[in-house]
Design a protein around this nucleic acid. Structure first.
Lengths: 362, 362
DNA sequence: TTCTAGATTTGGATCAATCCAAAAATACCT
DNA sequence: AGGTATTTTTGGATTGATCCAAATCTAGAA
């Protein structure tokens, strides 16, 4: 009989095998089988073995839906991001996935495309599916009340990257303000005095924290020049914004970008203007996506560790599910400045670029 | 009373409202409410309205888990990809998400990281969750028998991008062979005679189809030079492989890459060697990710439309779920060559690059 | 008014698990 | 052997919806 490789697929059409069937086959009750399945210490070894054999022999498949109906959790989580097509989110979702899988959880994914309506529809669907919790990167324009709504649904929610509503809330992210601060500090050390910031124009905490970090750092280093340009946080916007920026007088000698995509765009823009990134203008990005090390020139970037943020967010969600009334937590990872060629500190001489930044202080 | 904005949240702690409660409130039976919920034409307008009012007033939340237990489907799908961190997959998942959402479906996402074991664990979990179907980009090394296993589980499965097992199967992808063919054709038209291919080293259909397209195209154009280099399909591999390739004699005058990531790496490699992509060596990528238009130089690429593939795959899956025994379908989208500067045909003079490729035919 | 076809509505069984209180089996002490 | 304590096992109720066959209601015809 071939029933080891394909466990008794001949059982019955495909009309699933139930606990009852196993119970009958093993000569015990439904309840006992259930206990074995859930690895309860109540059941005697001899019985456990007998039941496990029956389970294997009949090719039983646990029905999580039925279990969820009677029990209290579904082992599922809803994950909402606003732009899955971005390498940053890809890495973050990979981190979430890895951490959840380890705990036997599985996640629904939705891409809100920054539409609060789509986000809302998805959340309602998640409620109908009785997910145990939500990992939410709130779409732009999400009303702060959403957090209360979720709370009134008694659906645990961990905010990621961006946050809305009033503290305390569960939150996992990177310390964006500190990241910008580090970037400014490094540029100052290299002699820069006119440092611009290419930022997002939206109302997010993630955007505002960077602005804050920027202006605080300028004040801290006593820099008079302050120039914050806003736009989409895309490659194309970086390309376009740098152009206007470099036509101003005085022009900045360095620019820090909201994310790496903008930074790549900015570097491309500089090149199109006949300027050399890292020589005529230093460029620093944020996120340190994989591509940063392999761009031309290699991009100096504030590493925000998306994979780790994903893992932390997932862990936090599981903690909150286990203890819904526990104290809210904020896991804010420290960023790390990854220095490469684009800010002119040319540690590796891979490109024929002059080692020291050209800058002209007032 | 504030019960319009927050629909009667005072109903009962949060011990959910059931069909029974609504039935009682509206003075009808459980069954009738169920019919209203499912928009059955059987129920009279007057009753429908009465019930809908009760639903709204009590703040009822449909319990899909309970429905799935008795009914026949769960309105969920499992999606397995092998590298979500890549922009290509990001776009594809976005397409899947959009198409599914339109039909009220929701999807579990798993990132196999090309591990057949992780993939297997996820699929088993999906079975326990009773998903209606699977969208599978098979991990490298997946045994062909997996398709039969899924069939024996009577779990509809649409393969995406890669395929394993024997036809007929459901499959959504791009015509990779044709894409490479187009690329070769274009290069030949520009005068190239020594065209190399930077490909993946894995055992996928997606890799092999490209090789096939490459050698067929060479034969078709009567080119004697054939050089296929294999490696990982990453930016770094592209960077490294181009280096060895350009040190050979004779060296190719053009190179086609398995995907855009490799192409970006190859262009960077050329630059690091002091060569100019599009002048000293033409480069063509595959996929036409967003970044292709904004690289330096802009990358000529075979557009494979990941978003559209995602949508098609989702649609196909829904069709198969609706009709499990219908004829298997293959949706293979035609790629389109997107011509930009990296192959030297410099249509836009944004860069100070010489317009015509330098090539020396035998 | 009675009958009947057609349109609505309904209660009971069912889906596959978990919970719980009580029963049965076993072990431990005099 | 008898009685208590402890460990295992169990049947019945429960979860919240759907299916289905039968019951009820309505309107039009005779």
């Amino acid at each position: 009989m071939t029933q080891d490789t394909a466990p008794a697929s001949s059982r019955r059409e495909s009309g699933s095998v139930t606990l009852q069937d196993i119970a009958a086959h093993a000569g015990v009750s439904r309840s006992t089988v259930s206990l074995v399945l859930r690895e309860s210490p109540l059941v005697a070894d001899r019985t456990r073995i007998k039941v496990q054999a029956a389970i294997k022999e009949l090719g039983y498949v646990y029905n999580r839906g039925a279990a969820a109906l009677r029990g209290s959790h579904t082992a599922t989580l809803g994950v909402v991001v606003y732009d899955i097509a971005t390498p940053f989110f890809g890495a973050m979702v990979a981190g979430i996935d890895a951490a959840l899988n380890r705990e036997g959880y599985v996640s629904f994914l939705a891409n809100s495309e920054d539409s609060p309506e789509r986000q809302q529809r998805f959340l309602e669907r998640m409620r109908e599916h009785r997910v145990d919790g939500i990992l939410l990167c709130p779409a732009e324009g999400t009303p702060a009340s959403l957090i209360d709504t979720l709370a009134s649904w008694s659906l645990p929610c961990v905010q990621v990257l961006r946050h809305i509503g009033e503290p305390p809330f569960d939150y996992a992210s990177s310390d964006f303000a500190r990241g910008v601060h580090q970037a400014v500090g490094h540029l100052v050390k290299l002699g820069h005095r006119r440092i611009a910031f290419l930022g997002g124009h939206a109302q997010h905490s993630a955007t505002q924290e960077r602005w804050q970090g920027y202006s605080d750092a300028l004040a801290h280093h006593d820099l008079g020049y302050q120039r914050l340009v806003r736009g989409q946080v895309t490659r194309r916007a970086g390309l376009e914004l740098i152009e206007t920026l470099m036509q101003e007088t005085p022009r900045p000698t360095a620019v820090i970008c909201h994310n790496d995509l903008m930074a790549f765009g900015a570097m491309l823009g500089l090149k199109r203007m006949g300027l050399t990134p890292g020589v005529d203008c230093a460029v620093i990005g944020t996120d340190d996506v994989e591509e940063a090390a392999l761009s031309d020139p290699a991009l100096t970037s504030v590493a925000t560790h998306p994979y780790a943020i994903g893992e932390e967010a997932a862990r936090l969600a599981l903690r909150r599910i286990a203890d819904p009334n526990g104290a809210r937590e904020q896991v804010v990872l420290a960023p790390r400045l990854q220095i490469r060629e684009s800010c002119g500190s040319a540690s590796q001489a891979t490109l024929p670029a002059s080692p020291i930044t050209s800058d002209s202080t007032t």
